[in-house]
């Protein structure tokens, strides 16, 4: 009996060693390879869909005022016609194919960077995993910014600074050039989840968080180019700045008397931290519903 127990303990100890060996065979700070072509899973943007709707955005007073002054002609300013979506917006906003290419250090075979490209307006992002110093605050900022990455378990955490100001939605709300964007990339089998958290001390009262899912690793995916050149025949005269004066916005979501097919009240369409949370739905039910329902043709993007 004693002999059998001793054999059992030995077998258990050997089993632990085998498990440890298997564990050690993988890198301790497991690098997960995101390489490949990823097809996005389409999702709706937040809000009602009314042009100008700011619901779900944690905008502060400045962010709201900025958004309320926006007019569609802003996108017709010749110099802004080729302005790309930012990487974080493209992840959320629609059918944006994604490609990650790893850069491998020859001597160690460790991934030192991922180079990403989104087909939506050809945005690119380099995530450096070598902990290189961030550039000074005096260098030129870019649409994709500067990103460092590190793995937390099997999640790649990308932290981006040096971003040019750009839009959160294509009807006015902006993310400032003081924002930091943290994106958590997690591969789940053939799925890739991107959780984007935007911290903006200029236009937000709280971090704004969005999660998008890339559907499947598809080796046959095509990333088309997006050629663009400055427009010269837009409706906006060169040198002019189209905008709405305070209280004069004509966007449907900014009209207190107008609503959508769901009867969305006016107040939530102005955004704010409260409107991000499900609990706000109960409050929305107590708010007055505008009487004029906009037509289908008035519906936004």
């Amino acid at each position: 009996m004693k002999q059998k127990r001793s054999t059992g303990v030995t077998a258990f100890a050997r089993g632990v060693l085998v498990l440890v060996g298997v564990t050690l065979a993988s890198p301790v700070s497991a690098q997960v390879d995101l390489a490949g072509l990823w097809r996005p899973l389409a999702r709706n943007q937040d809000g009602s869909g009314m042009d100008g709707d700011l619901a779900g955005l944690p905008l502060n007073e400045a962010g709201r005022q900025r958004a309320l002054s926006w007019v569609p002609e802003n996108f017709e300013v010749a110099e802004l016609v080729c302005r790309p979506h930012s990487f974080d917006y493209s992840i959320e906003a629609g059918p944006s194919q994604l490609r990650w290419v790893p850069e491998v250090e020859d001597s160690t075979q460790r991934i030192v960077a991922f180079h990403g490209r989104l087909s939506m307006r050809e945005q690119e992002s380099d995530i450096w995993l070598d902990n290189r110093p961030r550039p000074s605050d005096q260098v030129r900022y870019s649409w994709s910014g500067f990103s460092l990455g590190e793995f937390e378990g099997n999640t790649l955490v990308q932290t981006t600074t040096h971003l040019k100001e750009n839009y959160l939605r294509r009807w006015g709300p902006m993310r400032s050039d003081r924002a930091t964007v943290r994106t958590r990339w997690k591969r789940i089998g053939n799925y890739l989840r991107a959780t984007v958290i935007i911290y903006d001390p200029i236009y937000m009262d709280a971090p704004y968080l969005r999660t998008s899912l890339f559907w499947v690793n598809d080796p046959n995916l095509v990333l088309p180019p997006y050629p663009c050149e400055e427009a010269t025949g837009t409706v906006v005269e060169p040198g002019t700045v189209p905008h709405s004066l305070p209280g004069k916005s004509f966007l449907p979501a900014h009209d207190p008397n107008m609503t959508d097919a769901f009867g969305t009240p006016y107040e939530p369409r102005l955004g704010g931290v409260e409107t991000m949370y499900p609990e706000y739905i109960a409050k929305m039910k107590t708010l007055p519903r505008p009487k004029t329902v906009m037509g289908e043709g008035d519906r936004g993007q």
Binding site: R134, P135, D137, F151, V157, T180, Y199, P207
Partner: peptide
């Protein structure tokens, strides 16, 4: 040791200023 190396960054990472 690995956990310590991978401690989460602050939300606004330090950037060199003049």
């Amino acid at each position: 040791s690995v956990h310590t190396q991978n401690a989460p960054w602050a939300w606004a990472p330090p950037i060199h200023t003049i």
